[in-house]
Amino acid sequence: MKRIKDEPYFTHSVYSAFTTGIQVKCPKCHGMGIVTADEGSAYFKCTNCGYQAEKERTVYRYDVHNQCKNCGRYYRVDIEETAKQHFSALHVKCPYCGTMMSGEVHKTAEAFSYAAEINKGKEPWFGLELWFLTSFQGKPIWAINREHLTYLIDYLSADMREKPMGRGKKTQSDHLPTFMKTAKNRERIVKLLEKMQEE
C-alpha cells in the first residue's frame, strides 16, 4: 500500500520561483528555461539557447501633482498610459477647473507585484508557458517544476493520503482541482504526468 503525507500549502506555488525556480518554455528557441525571482525582480534564463530577460516586480504609480495656477487648488492626475509615463513633464488638465498646465511626472513605488498565480498554464511575470503542461478532457494540468511533478504523481497514485500534523491547515492538495482528485480520473492523469516526467 502506497502512503503519502501531504505537503504544506505553498510548497509548490509561484513562490517556488524564489527558491527552486519555475520551469518554462523559452520564447526564442522553445527549449527549457527557468524563471526565478527575488525581492525586486523576476529573471528568466534559457538552459538551451542562453536567452535571458529581467522584469522589475515593483509596481509604480505615475502622476502629475501641482497647484493649479487658475483656481489655486492642489491636484493629482494619474498617468495611466504607458507611453506617457516615460516623459519627464506633461500637459494635464486641472480636475477642478479644466485649465491645461505643464507639470513634472512623478514616479512612486507603490508595492511589489504579488499577482502571483499560474494562469492558463503561464507563469505570472513574463507570461511564459510552463514546461510541464498538458491537458485532460480540455482542462489544463501543469507542474511548475520537476519537484512539483514528482509530488503530483506521488500524491495522485497513493492509496492513502495523510494530512500533515496540525490543526486544519491548508495543504498542497488543496490547490488541486476536483477533477484531478476524482478516483475515476486519477490513473489516467498519473499516466499523463509520467509521460511529461520522461521529457
Rank of each mutant, 00 (worst) to 15 (best):
S13I: 00
V24K: 08
N119G: 01
S157M: 01
C29A: 01
A83V: 07
M101F: 02
F132M: 08
M196A: 07
P177T: 00
P140T: 04
L128I: 04
V190G: 00
E56D: 14
D38T: 01
Q172K: 04
G33S: 03
V14A: 08
K69M: 09
T19K: 11
P140H: 09
T58S: 15
Y9H: 15
T20F: 05
E104R: 14
D78R: 09
I144L: 13
T182R: 07
S102Q: 12
E147T: 10
G98A: 03
G98V: 03
W131V: 00
T99F: 11
V59A: 08
M32G: 08
T47G: 10
T134P: 04
P164L: 02
G98C: 05
M32L: 10
A111C: 13
K107L: 10
L152G: 05
E117C: 03
K184N: 12
C68I: 07
V190E: 04
M180Y: 12
K139E: 11
R3A: 09
Y151C: 03
N70I: 02
K181S: 06
P27L: 09
K120V: 00
I4A: 04
L176F: 13
A53L: 13
H148Q: 06
K93F: 10
V24Y: 07
F10G: 01
K25F: 07
R146V: 14
A89N: 10
K28A: 06
C68E: 06
G168M: 14
N119P: 02
D154M: 03
K191T: 14
Y51H: 12
C46G: 11
D174V: 03
T178L: 12
C29S: 04
I34D: 07
F136A: 01
Y15I: 00
P124I: 03
R73S: 08
C46S: 11
K170W: 15
I4D: 04
K191M: 14
L128M: 15
M100R: 15
P95F: 06
T19A: 07
K69I: 04
K195D: 14
E80V: 10
G50D: 15
I189T: 00
L192P: 08
H106E: 07
S88A: 09
Y151A: 00
K2Y: 13
E39G: 11
E198V: 11
Y60G: 02
M101L: 07
K120N: 13
A109K: 08
I22C: 05
Y75G: 00
H12C: 03
E187Q: 06
V77F: 02
R73W: 05
I189P: 03
C68Y: 11
Q23F: 13
E198N: 12
R76H: 11
S13K: 00
K184S: 15
A158E: 10
R3Y: 11
K191L: 15
G121W: 09
N48L: 13
D154N: 14
L193W: 01
L128P: 08
K45E: 14
G138T: 09
I153T: 06
K163I: 06
G40L: 14
L152F: 06
K122E: 15
G33L: 00
Y114M: 10
S113N: 14
K5H: 10
K184W: 09
W131L: 05
Q172V: 04
N145I: 05
M180P: 14
G138S: 06
K181V: 03
H91C: 09
